[in-house]
């Protein structure tokens, strides 16, 4: 190393921001009454309704929180590059894929999936081209799902459907 060490402060800030988001969403889901209700609705909507949980309200709050976090992610993205009205479509598929790989309804899975896809994406795009990289990552995900059809984190249930 020659000269002074320069750190990409904006990237560090994004890192910190994601950790804060992750911790707060974990706290919300697993430590608050609202989070408990949300998980109840997710696991058994009818039963939760019978126990007096307003599923409509939960739906609304969850959707609002999800949209809010998407907004935070959007803010973070502005620090990384150019933005435009269609910036969302570039990221939405990656975001969905993260959920598929991680397992629906699993926080840890989402984090692991995001890291996995992010790292492989970068590697593939570096080694090949951007478009071939996308194809490779897609094939990799399909192959991964042959091994773990419901993602990294699986929730078991006894019900039939």
């Amino acid at each position: 190393m020659v000269g002074s060490l320069s750190l990409p402060y904006s990237r560090l800030f994004i890192l910190a921001l994601s950790i804060v988001c992750l911790v707060s969403i974990y706290y919300y889901f697993y430590r608050t009454a609202n989070g408990r209700r949300t998980r109840a609705v997710m696991q058994n909507r009818q039963m939760a309704e019978c126990l007096g949980v307003s599923t409509r309200k939960v739906d609304m709050i969850t959707f609002a929180i999800g949209s809010g976090f998407a907004g935070v992610a959007g803010c973070a993205l502005t620090l990384l590059g150019a933005i435009g009205p269609t910036i969302g479509t570039n990221y939405i598929i990656d975001a969905f894929m993260v959920v598929v790989v991680g397992g629906v309804g699993a926080l840890f899975g989402a984090v692991a999936g995001a890291f996995g896809i992010g790292i492989f994406n970068t590697v593939f795009e570096y080694v090949t081209s951007a478009s071939i990289g996308k194809v490779l990552i897609f094939l990799l995900i399909i192959a991964f799902l042959q091994w773990r059809p419901s993602g990294l984190v699986v929730s078991r249930s006894r019900s039939l459907d």
Binding site: K134, F138, P149
Partner: peptide, 27 residues
């Protein structure tokens, strides 16, 4: 075959579009 269905399949079907369209544009 692996019983991937519902939202999982939907996402994969959409990813297929993204991948192939990127490929079309790239080539």
């Amino acid at each position: 075959r692996n019983r991937i269905s519902g939202v999982y399949f939907t996402i994969l079907s959409q990813a297929l579009v993204l991948v192939l369209v990127t490929l079309f544009v790239g080539a």
